[in-house]
Design a protein around this nucleic acid. Structure first.
Length: 356
RNA sequence: UGGGGUGUAGCCAAGCGGUAAGGCACGGGACUUUGACUCCCGCAUUCGUAGGUUCGAACCCUGCCACCCCAG
């Protein structure tokens, strides 16, 4: 029997994680993180409801539970970087940072302080004894993409009780145990912040900087109100209709120097596809692969969550590298994460700095 | 000022006397622990305007208005 501190979100997955740990005979302590104190778009503080759900589940499971706030850490280590990236015209993924800095750092420290043997989360991922990160068993819910920045030593201190289950099985277990959250809708949006009208949300922090929307040829066809509010491959929100051949327009690129958004027409436009990507800040979960500079490593890559694996070749120098895709990839976006896989092992990944 | 042309939803655009296609944009929903993409649903009782012909008109006729082109 071990002492395990479980991160509870108020959702089904973490509640079932706690349930399974308890069944295994561990001493389970539930901890709810409230890292963002602000109401969501529905006008209510969803964190409040989540905390109610945590209390409800823990009462049913009969485990002690607490609420902590890492709002300051979240602000300093995740959100400030998130804004900095947007200011620079990139499209960051705050959740990969949140996992590295908050859940697998600040929260893990707390667990250690509470004299726990392990921390646990409701992530749909698995790990080996050696500290390799494996995909979750449910291919539709695998969340390894979001954990690629974690390290083996952190994983070895973490249990993922639902990683070998499917979402359906998790809900079934919750139902049988009488948990009120068994049919609660999956949460989406930025972790801890929740669903937002994204552009409006950003506008609270980043002032508008209007400019032109232009075609490849440089023809101005509309106005944008700030390059940071748009991302590569985006279609919605451009407000351009009836031009050209009548098909939809997509963001192909950002001209930061001239504050212009470059648009192309048609979802299959060649400018929306890239044969490769330049990446930086490459990190490895466990073993660093033994390859020399300029030697290509074959791997599978995901350029976004839930994307099917893509075959690619990686060559690297230090923590920078170049990825070459077997098949051209759509909307390869600076700031986003390219995550590497070898079979079911999530090896690590890097941040896209440009498409090639 | 003559001559010709055009006026259909925010934009583009079918329709040619029988009771308003389609696309884009936009809105809503689904999907989704980032941002996107994608999918589904919705979106003109009304056709520049005022009359007339007709059982019946966006489609025919007349006046007016607006815009475009060519003359001057």
């Amino acid at each position: 029997m071990s002492r395990v501190v479980v991160g509870l979100s108020g959702g089904v997955d973490s509640a079932v994680a706690a349930l399974l740990l308890k069944r295994q005979g561990h001493e389970v302590i539930g901890v709810f993180m409230n890292n963002w104190e602000e109401e969501d778009d529905s006008g209510q503080c969803s964190a409040q409801q989540d905390w109610e759900d945590v209390r409800s589940s823990c009462q049913i499971l009969d485990i002690p539970h607490y609420s902590v706030s890492f709002a300051r850490e979240y602000e300093e280590r995740v959100f400030s970087h998130f804004l900095k990236e947007y200011r620079a015209g990139r499209t960051p993924n705050p959740d990969v940072l949140c996992n590295r800095e908050i859940k697998f750092s600040a929260f893990l420290d707390l667990a250690v302080k509470l004299d726990a043997d392990y921390m646990a989360t409701g992530h749909f991922v698995q790990r080996t004894q050696a500290g390799d990160l494996l995909r979750g068993a449910d291919p539709a819910k695998d969340q390894s993409y979001f954990l690629y920045m974690t390290k083996a030593h952190q994983l070895r201190q973490t249990l993922f009780p639902v990683g070998h289950l499917t979402k359906q099985e998790v809900r079934q277990i919750a139902r049988e145990a009488g948990l009120l959250v068994s049919d609660k809708k999956d949460s989406t949006g930025i972790c801890f912040i929740g669903e937002r009208r994204f552009k409006q949300f950003l506008q609270q922090y980043l002032p508008a900087q209007p400019g032109d929307m232009v075609t490849e040829a440089g023809e101005a066809i509309g106005k944008h109100d700030g390059l940071m509010y748009y991302t590569i491959g985006q279609r919605k929100g451009l407000g351009i209709g009836g031009r050209g051949d009548g098909r939809s327009w997509f963001v192909a690129d950002k001209d930061l120097k001239n504050n212009r958004l470059i648009l192309v027409q048609g979802e299959d436009h060649p400018k929306l596809f890239a044969r490769g990507a330049r990446i930086e800040e490459i990190t490895w979960v466990n073993e660093v692969p033994a390859i020399r500079d300029n030697e290509a490593l074959a791997l599978q890559v995901k350029l976004r969550y839930r994307q099917p694996d893509q075959k690619a070749w990686l060559t690297m120098t230090g923590d920078k590298g170049i990825l070459q895709f077997d098949k051209p990839q759509r909307a390869v976006t600076p700031g986003q994460s390219a995550v590497f896989y070898d079979g079911d092992v999530c090896l690590g990944g890097g941040i896209v700095v440009s498409s090639l």
